[in-house]
């Protein structure tokens, strides 16, 4: 069957989405074709608005549609505690715990010379600026528990020795509700190494 050029273009565009192959892209395209016009109008408008309106919060680099993100604008959040994370999904994960009522700083990456990412390629300078202008009681380093996340945390700690602010690092170990026998050895080993007095 001869596929109209517009449909073809749509399939090619959708096929660029992560996890979407040609087959799925074709299915999506035919779905859109069958839906009422309003659906496509809505979708098109949202896609454009996404690029036009969504940007990074000028203070913490979370996503926002205004100057500052909802977390930074929330008066109930404690401004004195900043949790430093690598990515926005990490921020979302911590938000989901409901355990944290401070603010964030999203680095947008971790230092990794091997991948060509140095301190200037992530939001480190912005963090230092922020610490100069805000009164901060605690900085929590919640970068990933792997070698790059650790190096990033160590580097930040080093930069911050000149600034008088207590720095903490998230703990790593056994997940809650995890039977010890089903936890992978690396995690269990770390949990043992980082044990604490009761």
């Amino acid at each position: 069957m001869q596929i109209p050029e517009t449909l073809n273009r749509l399939v090619r565009l959708l096929g660029k989405l992560p996890g979407v192959g040609e087959k799925t892209a074709t299915r999506f395209a035919f779905f859109l074709l069958d839906e009422p016009l309003e659906f496509s109008q809505d979708l098109a408008r949202v896609l454009l608005a996404l690029k036009e309106n969504v940007r990074l919060c000028s203070r913490c680099f979370n996503l926002t549609e205004s100057e500052r993100c909802r977390i930074c604008d929330d008066l109930r959040r404690q401004n004195g505690t900043i949790c430093v994370v690598e990515t926005i999904p990490d921020l979302v994960a911590i938000e989901r715990t409901g355990e944290f009522s401070g603010t964030y700083h999203v680095l947008h990456g971790a230092i990794s010379p091997l991948s060509g990412i140095g301190p200037n390629d992530i939001k480190v300078r912005e963090l230092l600026e922020r610490l100069k202008s805000e009164t901060v009681q605690e900085l929590i380093l919640a970068t990933n528990i792997n070698v790059d996340g650790e190096a990033t945390a160590l580097y930040l700690k080093k930069l911050l020795t000149s600034i008088d602010v207590p720095v903490t690092r998230i703990a790593s170990g056994v997940p809650l509700g995890g039977d010890l026998e089903h936890i992978d050895k690396g995690t269990l080993g770390r949990a043992l190494a980082n044990r604490r007095p009761l």
């Binding site: 010379p113 091997l114 140095g118 301190p119 070698v147 190096a151 160590l154 580097y155």
Partner: peptide
């Protein structure tokens, strides 16, 4: 090995782009 490659990578950078505080981090790690 990964940290070793990171340190070697830093050692190869030009003096202008080199960050000594970062090199200290990789020494420690």
């Amino acid at each position: 090995q990964k940290v070793l490659r990171n340190r070697n990578n830093l050692l190869k950078q030009s003096p202008a782009e080199r960050n000594l505080a970062l090199l200290e981090v990789y020494d420690e790690q």
